[in-house]
């Protein structure tokens, strides 16, 4: 415990791993985190897996190029909506 006190504990380290993805950490923090990651296999795995999850989540949201389109009911509703607008204002 006393050995690790200048470093972070795992809870702080994992939080900093999340922050690190957003903006660069201050130099001292960076060094401390680097040291922690070299000593702690769990947090090292966490850092990798955290990035992996972020990549996968982004890929998950990418729309399938071909897939099911608008359900017919929604399409009809939307068409009514735009037609009503066109008829109401006289704008094409």
């Amino acid at each position: 415990m006393s050995l690790l006190s200048p470093l972070f504990n795992c809870q702080q380290a994992t939080l900093l791993i999340e922050r690190r993805a957003d903006a660069a950490l201050p130099f001292k923090t960076k060094v401390q985190l680097w040291a922690h990651l070299h000593l702690c296999p769990y947090c090292k795995r966490y850092a990798f897996q955290s990035k992996y999850i972020a990549r996968q989540a982004l890929a998950l949201a990418a729309p399938f190029p071909t897939g099911d389109g608008l359900p017919p009911a929604v399409r009809a509703r939307l068409q009514t909506l735009v037609d009503a607008h066109g008829a109401g204002t006289g704008v094409l």
Binding site: P63, G69, V74
Partner: peptide
């Protein structure tokens, strides 16, 4: 329509 819908559906 389809494109917007698929985009929204992914999200």
């Amino acid at each position: 329509g389809d494109e917007l819908y698929r985009f929204a559906l992914g999200r």
